[in-house]
Structures are given as structure tokens and as C-alpha cells.
Design a protein around this nucleic acid. Structure first.
Lengths: 347, 347
DNA sequence: TTGAAAGCGCTAACAG
DNA sequence: CTGTTAGCGCTTTCAA
């Protein structure tokens, strides 16, 4: 509720002119005399007039709000992205409606539906790990809803996308492990459904290939729910750790998986990196003070949020339908710390 | 924009009845025959009718959205709180508008103003560290805007509040340090302005007092921006570490301060807990895998968000003005880990 | 340059 | 039980 319930009519009455004149004056229309404009502006200021956004929205058919779909906000990477989204949106007079899928396809559909009920002007989405089919988005896209994908995208819709350089991040990370002397490098990753999994996998594979290390399929473990369930990571990890051919290094592909893996290795009393090295994607600012300090691939979360929102708003506000789309790839940074120290070096 | 632009009129036309009848049928009014209701519902379903929330809001004078003010979303504790807020709000058909103050009083005022422009039905706020004066909220409160404080509250407005048991958390934490053999316990805390600082300070003081340890004012360091600036924590810390009477333990009072202190101690090559012990408020799930594993006071962030939102929505939807207010205090949990191991014990 | 009037989609008082 | 009408606050023709 707007508690400054001063309307255009109040100004009109005060000045003895018509509401429509006031409206025009406030919008700085050319068909209003400078004198009247001055009076209106002064009066609006004086009696504390604030436009009612709901009335404007109803009239204009725009809600000035954008919907966000992420897996969960309680995650370093996504909270940074949302931080970025929020700042750009706010600066442009938009507010954001955040919804969480918890990696569930059903919840993703429900959330998208809920958002359209709320009359959003555009959608920013990072797909859930369960999502294979995006018909729920195709329909909306066809009807003209501006959509920008970030992080976990889909090829099935042509629109703007913003991702981190997952390929290079993974490539670089794997190369660093190889340089440090590890050869049996396992990869614990998210669901095959999501784009980031494929991109990271490719980087990992190329690094191995270039270094003449044969790919061992048993070293690649997928977590269908992106590590949401502790059990799936526990399962993947124990298959790796208690196999005949235990890997000497782990390359983990997401924030949740990386930190959970670290915690599990602790619990299992594995020494890092002596028993097994660890390097993973994570955006935690605590990487340097973990035990051991954690080698990591960092994604520019805030920038990703900002860029995606800028693109979305430009689509929303574009006069003519946008037909040229862009996929922005933001650089990742690899930090080498103790958890991937060279083999055989005693600290 | 609602891309399912089917309106009540479409149903009315389809069925050859009046829009108001349709409206009433949809709202299950008693003055509509079951037969008509059935027809309307079926037709609504069939042609994909979705109510336009902006029109409803305009009519009802309610926006079904609530405003949130926090220092920054990119912080474990607050992102957990927002997670809780979001889930309850969403379940009750509300959406949330998040704004961040970055601990700035000016931004807090601006955000609150912005939120009222956006016609929020209620406000959830955790004050910035800079905030001493809350006239910007008093005005709104007087005009009838439902407000619920969480985390950092103010006595100057009588309304619902939800806080963690800061007093007990701090008391318990300090007692644990004393039990472990530490006697020179310093306290690095946030700004004196915010409620949590006082509450935590009191717990700290009582623990010392009960154990006949004299309070040393020099051991209490305030960070006016809650640790937003690295420099202020650096400054506080070096005053403590390089004084004649260096403390043997640190009790830090917020997420940011705790993790930054840990990082700085690392940088300065201080051994924890041998050179100095550390125990602090933090909500990071990584506490157990930090180096060393970090003793911590954990606040129920998600619950805090949920509870605050439930209270706010009950105020918003209350038929009569609410006059009985409650301050809910949620328990904190203290986890003792290696960073506060008993003095003299070699691991 | 200004004003009257219609209408965005929905609801509610009042008639019928 | 159903329809007519007016109006939430604002914008936008169109007419004056």
C-alpha cells in the first residue's frame, strides 16, 4: 500500500486544473506550458505526490518487475549473482521477484508459472539440474516474454545468454592438476542435463587429451541433483575413493559439490592433497582459509548478474523486436592453493 | 506483462453473462448459482484465464508485495534469512522486493523510500550499522505500514521483532573460551549503534564477570561499518595483536568480522589457537573445514526469515489494528571446534 | 495549450 | 441469483 496516498487529482484540485493536464505536466509533455509545468512540479513536491506504480502498470501493461529463477539463493555463487541483478534492476526502476527451484523441474515450472501470473516484464533464469525439457519456457518466449539465460542455459531458445567461461576454467584447472603431477584425475560434476556440466567436462577432457592422459569413464561421476543431496556426493565419492584404482586428484564442478566433498574428505580422514588432491569450482571467499587452502575456479557472479540484467532490460525496453542475440562469456579465474600442491612436496 | 492476456470479459463474452457475475463466480461468492460457477470455472480453465494482479492490486489497494532491507544479500546469514522470507512470502502469494544498504544510513533511507514508492504492503528490516536515527521508519509506522524488525532492531518503534538469542550466544561462547583456559578475551564487534552489538556485549560481559575476570576496555573493539571495510578490522586486530597486553583469545561478533579476522590471522602468520584462539558468530557451513576448524555461534537464519515473514503477513492481513507486539528470540547454537581448543593441549 | 472522456482489468454497491 | 454502474489512479486520444 502506498501510504503517501496523494494522487494526481489532489494536485489538479489544488491548482484548479484538470488531472490530465497534471499527468502531462508530470511527464514533461510538450503540449503543456512551462508555467503550468512549474506550478505542477512545485505542488507535487510540496504535497508529496508519488505516482502509484500499480495504476501506471495497469495502464501501461508493464509491471516494472523481473522474475528470477535460481536453484537456491543460499549459495555463494547465486547470492552474488542476485546481488548483481538487484543492483542493476534497482537502478533502472525495476524490482525483482526471486524464486527458488531447489533443483526440481516441477518447482521450476511452478515458479515460472507463478512469475507470469505476477505479470513480469522479463525473466532471468538458470535452469534446474532436473530440467531436460523447456517447453514451459518456449511458450512464453514465443508469446514475446523477454528471457535471458545465465549460468545454466539451453540451446533450444534463441535469446541472450550470459555464462562463465566454464570450458576454460575447467581446462585450466585440469592442466594445473596435471602440472602438479597428478594423472589420475577424477571429475565429480552435476547433472548431465545442464549446460555447465557439458562445458566443464569438455575442458577437462581436452586438458587430459593434450597431456596424453587417457580418459577413464569411471572417473567421471554425475550428481543428478547438483549435490543438493548429501547422499549423492557421498555415493560418488566413495565409489572413487574405495575403488581398485583410486584417483589421486578430484576436480569438482560446482560450489556445493566442492565444499561438500571437502567436508566429506575430512570426515573420512583423507589427507589433502597427500591422499588425494582437490580443486573445484566455488565462489566462497573462504577458499584461502580452508583446511587446506582450497584451489578453486572462481566465477564472476556479480558481473554475471549485472550483465544478464542489462541485457534483459534492453530487450524489455527495446522499441522493435530484438532479433540479434548474444552469448556473453565472462572469464573465470583459477586460484592454485595448497589443496592441489605438487605431488611429493612436503610442506 | 501478463502474456496470458485473457480477461474476465473474455469469459463473460464466451458465456454470455456479465463480467461482474464472472468475477463473483471466480471468487466463489454465495450469490452465484452452482451451475454458473461451474460454467465459469470450466471456461476459465479452458481458455487459460489468469487474474491480472495489477488490476486486483489497484482495486484492493494492496500490492501483495513486501519490502526487505538488509545490509547485503551476499552474506551467509542474510542469504539464509532471505531464503526463509522468500519461502513463506511465496506460499502466501506475496512477492518480495529486496534492497541492500551496504551498511549505509543514506542508502537505507533511500531504499525505504523507494520501497514505499513501490507500494509495499509491509516491511522487513534489519538496520544498517550506521543507523542511529529511525525517523524515516517512524513516519511510515505512524501512517500504518506494518513493519517487522529482524536481527538488528530498534526500541524506538513498537512492533513485532525477531532476533537470535544474541545475549546467550555471546555468553555461552565466552564461557566456553574461559573454560578452555583463556582469560584475556578480546571482543571485536560491530557498530555501537546496532542492537545486536549491545546484546552480544552484555553476554560477553556477564560471562567475564561470573568468572571473576575483569573487563578490559581495551579489549573491546568496534567496527563502525560492521566489518564492511577490511581496513577497520585490520585496524582493530592490529591494535589487539601488537599491544603490550596481547589477548589470548578473540570473540568476534559477526559473520563478516569472524571470517575476515580468520583470514587476517592467516596472513599475519598467527597460529590458531596457539598464538590466539578464535570463536565467532558465523553462519557459514564451512566452519568445520576451515583451518583450523572454527568454533562458532550459529544463528537460525532461515527460521528467522520465516518467523519474521509470518508475523508481517499476519499484521498485513489482520482485520483490526494490531496492538499487541511480540519479540521472538530464537536460540543460537555454539559449536566448539579447534580454533578454541583448550590452552596448552597439543593436537 | 488545456480539458473531457474513455479505458487498462477488476471489484463491489446497488438494482433488478 | 444476475446485471448495471461506478471507480481504483493513471494515461491518452480527441475536442475545445
Amino acid at each position: 500500500m502506498n501510504f503517501e496516498a496523494v494522487t494526481i487529482k489532489d494536485i489538479a484540485r489544488e491548482l484548479g486544473i484538470s488531472p490530465s493536464a497534471v499527468s502531462k505536466a508530470l511527464r514533461d509533455s510538450h503540449e503543456i506550458s512551462p508555467k503550468t509545468k512549474g506550478l505542477v512540479l512545485e505542488c507535487a513536491q510540496r504535497i508529496g505526490y508519488k505516482p502509484n506504480p500499480m495504476a501506471q502498470s495497469l495502464k501501461r501493461g508493464k509491471s516494472k518487475s523481473i522474475g528470477i529463477v535460481v536453484s537456491t539463493i543460499d549459495n555463494q555463487f547465486f547470492s552474488q549473482v542476485i546481488n548483481g541483478i538487484e543492483s542493476v534492476a534497482h537502478n533502472n526502476g525495476y524490482n525483482v521477484i526471486i524464486t527458488q527451484t531447489n533443483e526440481s523441474f516441477e518447482l521450476e515450472k511452478l515458479n515460472v508459472q507463478h512469475l507470469t501470473f505476477r505479470s513480469i516484464d522479463g525473466l532471468l533464469i538458470s535452469l534446474s539440474t532436473e530440467t531436460k525439457n523447456i517447453d514451459h519456457l518456449k511458450d512464453l518466449h514465443k508469446k514475446g516474454l523477454p528471457i535471458v539465460f545465465f549460468d545454466r542455459t539451453s540451446d533450444e531458445i534463441e535469446t541472450h545468454k550470459v555464462i562463465a567461461d566454464n570450458f576454460n576454467g575447467a581446462y585450466e584447472a585440469t592442466v594445473q592438476l596435471i602440472k602438479a603431477g597428478y594423472r589420475k584425475i577424477a571429475h565429480i560434476t552435476s547433472s548431465v542435463n545442464v549446460s555447465i556440466t557439458t562445458e566443464r567436462l569438455k575442458g577437462y577432457q581436452l586438458a587430459l587429451e593434450e597431456n596424453n592422459i587417457e580418459l577413464n569413464e569411471k572417473y567421471i561421476k554425475y550428481c543428478l541433483h547438483g549435490g543438493k543431496d548429501l547422499a549423492e556426493i557421498e555415493h560418488a565419492l566413495s565409489e572413487l575413493l574405495f575403488s581398485d584404482d583410486r584417483p589421486d586428484a578430484l576436480f569438482t564442478a560446482s560450489d556445493r559439490i566442492t565444499t561438500t566433498t571437502l567436508a566429506l574428505l575430512h570426515k573420512l580422514k583423507f589427507k589433502i592433497p597427500d591422499d588425494i588432491a582437490l580443486l573445484g569450482f566455488t565462489n566462497t571467499q573462504l577458499a584461502a582459509v580452508l583446511n587446506p587452502s582450497l584451489s578453486s575456479v572462481y566465477q564472476p557472479g556479480i558481473e554475471m548478474g549485472k550483465k544478464a540484467t542489462e541485457m534483459l532490460i534492453s530487450m524489455i525496453e527495446s522499441k522493435r523486436p530484438v532479433t540479434e542475440f548474444e552469448t556473453v562469456i565472462l572469464p573465470t579465474q583459477v586460484f592454485i592453493r595448497d589443496s592441489s600442491k605438487p605431488v611429493g612436496v612436503i610442506s
